Computed example of a mutant assay.
Amino acid sequence: MIDKVLKNVQVESKANVYFDGKVTSRTCYRQDGGRFTLGIITAGSYTFDVGDREVVQLIAGSAEVLLPGEENWRAVAAQESFEIGADCKYQIRTDGVAEYLCDYYKD
């Protein structure tokens, strides 16, 4: 579970804006140098390119994801997570607003 208040992090003030502002996030860094983003996804369907391996946890709302190598969409809701391997693409869709925290890992 993600804490409501994240302590001892640095936040980049410049937003990451995707799909004409329908998906936005802020890049953050933990004291140990770990990188993550906090963001929102508004109603729609989106395809993301992945560089580093990602673990995405929904903070609020719900969505469906289609992960690489899978044929069926998977439902995810607040407090649930999913993982995407490095150097691939995945799809995500939602009917409302989903908030997320995405951790990045260099393998």
Rank of each mutant, 00 (worst) to 15 (best):
Q79Y: 13
A63N: 05
L67M: 02
V56Y: 01
V5N: 14
A98Y: 02
L58C: 04
F48A: 00
V55K: 13
I2C: 11
T27V: 12
S45A: 08
V5H: 07
P68C: 02
A98T: 00
C28N: 02
K89T: 15
C102S: 07
A77F: 12
Y18R: 07
Y105R: 11
L38A: 03
G85N: 08
I2V: 10
D103E: 12
V5G: 06
K22F: 10
G39T: 03
S81M: 14
G85L: 05
A60Y: 05
T37I: 11
V17W: 07
D32M: 03
F48T: 01
V76P: 01
Y29Q: 04
G39F: 05
Q79I: 13
K14G: 14
Y46W: 06
D107E: 09
S25P: 07
L67R: 00
Q91D: 10
K106L: 13
Y46T: 05
I40E: 09
F19S: 13
Q10I: 06
A43E: 08
L66G: 00
V5Y: 10
L67G: 00
T47R: 06
M1Y: 15
V55C: 14
W73T: 04
Y29D: 04
K7G: 09
K106H: 13
A60M: 05
R26H: 15
K89L: 11
T24A: 14
K7Y: 12
Y46C: 02
G34D: 12
V97W: 01
K22L: 11
G39P: 03
V65S: 00
R93K: 08
S45L: 08
Y29A: 03
D95M: 15
Y100S: 05
S25A: 07
T24D: 10
E99P: 01
L66K: 01
K4V: 15
A15G: 14
A60V: 04
R35T: 08
K7N: 11
K4M: 14
V9K: 11
I84N: 00
R74K: 10
C88T: 07
S25Q: 08
D32F: 02
I59Q: 03
T27G: 09
K106E: 13
I41S: 01
T94N: 01
G44L: 05
G44S: 02
E12L: 14
I40F: 11
